[in-house]
Amino acid sequence: MLCKCQQTSVSESSEQPQVDLSQVKGLLDAYDPATTNLITLLQGVQKIYGYLPEEVLKEVSIVTKIKEAKIYGVATFYSQFRLKPIGKYLIMLCQGTACHVNGSANIERALQEVLAVNEGDITPDGLFTYINVACLGCCSLAPVMMINDQTHAKLTTGDVAKIINEIRAQEGMAI
């Protein structure tokens, strides 16, 4: 997103991929201020693109007549919203209390090691992004992570590399 006063980019990654605005047309056409709030709308956008592309947020602003600044305010308030693209597989690593007590910090270290990226970043092969979340509600099977809606429970540091490498193999990547 651009800072209007200085015209410098305040987003962290300067090279964002080209986005296809036509994908969001249906969603914006159906927008009705009486029934849809901004959060629901942004959730719809994120469902389409996996994140909230700057160009799309501008469109949202035009259609909804909500100021860009306000949209940015809402988008940055909630941890669910991302302003950067993510990998094909989104890994949500639980850092809730139960998982923390059962060693989620070690799981994160193992994950960083096998993916070689930091939280929120995308792996060079475009496959993975991992983020920390507060609780996935599977606390009695801690530590837990969720990869695109599939939950992996009772993780050990060894499991992590195995699971990631299985996905890499499926995707035809050299391990």
């Binding site: 809730g96 209390t97 139960a98 998982c99 507060a134 609780c135 599977c138 606390c139």
Partner: peptide, 11 residues
């Protein structure tokens, strides 16, 4: 909203 991280009664 079940915010307490480490609880899942409502879920």
């Amino acid at each position: 909203d079940e915010g307490d991280p480490g609880a899942f009664m409502d879920r």
